[in-house]
Nucleic acid binder design. Structure first.
Lengths: 221, 221
DNA sequence: ACAAGAATTGACCATTTGGTCAAACTCATA
DNA sequence: TATGAGTTTGACCAAATGGTCAATTCTTGT
């Protein structure tokens, strides 16, 4: 077979990762912050370049358009989302599976609030970029988890309910700590929640939701 | 925060309401939509004027700056928020008070999703306009409701918990249906939730949360 | 009817912003 | 060291945008 030389862009994954990918990551990190703070429209390429410490023209060398850069940032957000989503499946017991998923989403809200904000912002402007994801990967994931929850309901482990509204509740409750962290900080005396407070919030959320949906035969606590 | 009486316009509230206030309302309605869809930065005065069916210069006659218009829209959002907040106090029974408040917030998410989106957008960009509200009215409201919930806990009506995280949970869960309505619509087969589905979501949310926090002595179902 | 204030609007302007470009610089390798 | 691909960057441009303004057209009280 022919060596199949690519036309324009070669495969610089291993060849020269130091220069290009390092710079790309630098830009992506700055872009994530700016997009999260200002939204797609509010973010400017000059501001992103400024925060990355490079001239704007250099940014456009790596990402030809603002939208291309935004799409790249968005990809990372979706990747992180999928990682957290997998924690739903590690256990067959509803209490443990739900606790793991809620916990993972809470940890993500704490670790990567920017990603959650970008997601929220993207949804609120009509999801022009991730629309496809919503109808494919996300819809599929939701359907399969609905089936799992439904099986728990059928087994009498979970109170009868519409599973999808439980999922929405989990998404809402967890992402709130990322998307509205400014409000939460303001209501916390202008100081962000410390680790102890956040752990309390996380534990309490899990407790409340499990109490709300688990069909207890006898609680041991 | 002061109501910010316009610089030029005197007090034409009752004297000549037909012309000015009607036009202002027309603009405010258009502005609410555009700000909700595009955020503060993304919204343009020309777009707002276009949707209001008037020339841009006419818009600037009533609202000198984009920020002044945004502030006016925001005032309405806060007013609506306070209206829903009052439903917390209509009852001494925790189950009824919480159900009323959750229901009111859900109805608001359904009736005025734009207001919720503007709130979310404003918080996510750091709340430059409503910051004062957060530290005064909202903080006070939160503190007093925390006290109420705490009294319920002391009476053994509510499970021991940090009341504020319950409030956050309610805010998150209800506003989610407004802020993320696009996502919910997408996951509903590209059709918005109909009234029946929304009622189910609302009822289920109330049921789940009450189950999660009420200290039942004996259930009657 | 008419004067005066209120309202309307097309034309215009300064600034911002996404994006371009050509010249210059770096650096590994033949 | 010469070469050429890859990288950097200041200068620049067209379009978009918030806002202004003077001229014109209503409304309304007398």
């Amino acid at each position: 077979m022919t060596p199949a030389t690519p036309l324009e862009s070669p495969l610089p994954d291993r060849s020269k990762p130091t220069i290009r990918s390092a710079k790309e990551q630098l830009i992506l990190d700055a872009a994530e912050k700016v997009f999260a703070e200002l939204g797609f429209k509010g973010a400017t390429t000059s501001e992103i370049a400024l925060r990355a410490g490079i001239p704007k023209a250099n940014l456009h060398y790596y990402f030809p358009t603002k939208e291309a850069l935004y799409r790249a940032v968005t990809e990372n957000v979706l990747t992180a989302w999928l990682a957290a989503a997998s924690s739903f499946d590690v256990n067959d017991d509803p209490a443990e599976a739900l606790a793991a998923y809620i916990g993972a989403k809470m940890d993500m809200a704490r670790t990567d609030p920017l990603g959650s904000k970008i997601w929220a912002s993207e949804i609120m402007r009509g999801a022009p970029v991730i629309e496809d994801f919503l109808h494919t990967t996300l819809a599929t994931w939701l359907a399969s988890r609905e089936a799992i929850i439904q099986s728990w309901i059928n087994k009498g482990l979970i109170v009868p309910m519409q599973p999808r509204y439980l999922i929405y509740l989990i998404w809402a409750a967890t992402q709130h700590y990322a998307d509205f962290d400014h409000q939460i900080t303001a209501l916390n005396g202008s100081a962000p929640l410390d680790d102890a407070a956040f752990t309390t919030a996380k534990t309490q959320l899990i407790t409340t939701l499990l109490r709300g949906v688990l069909n207890v035969a006898k609680s041991d606590t």
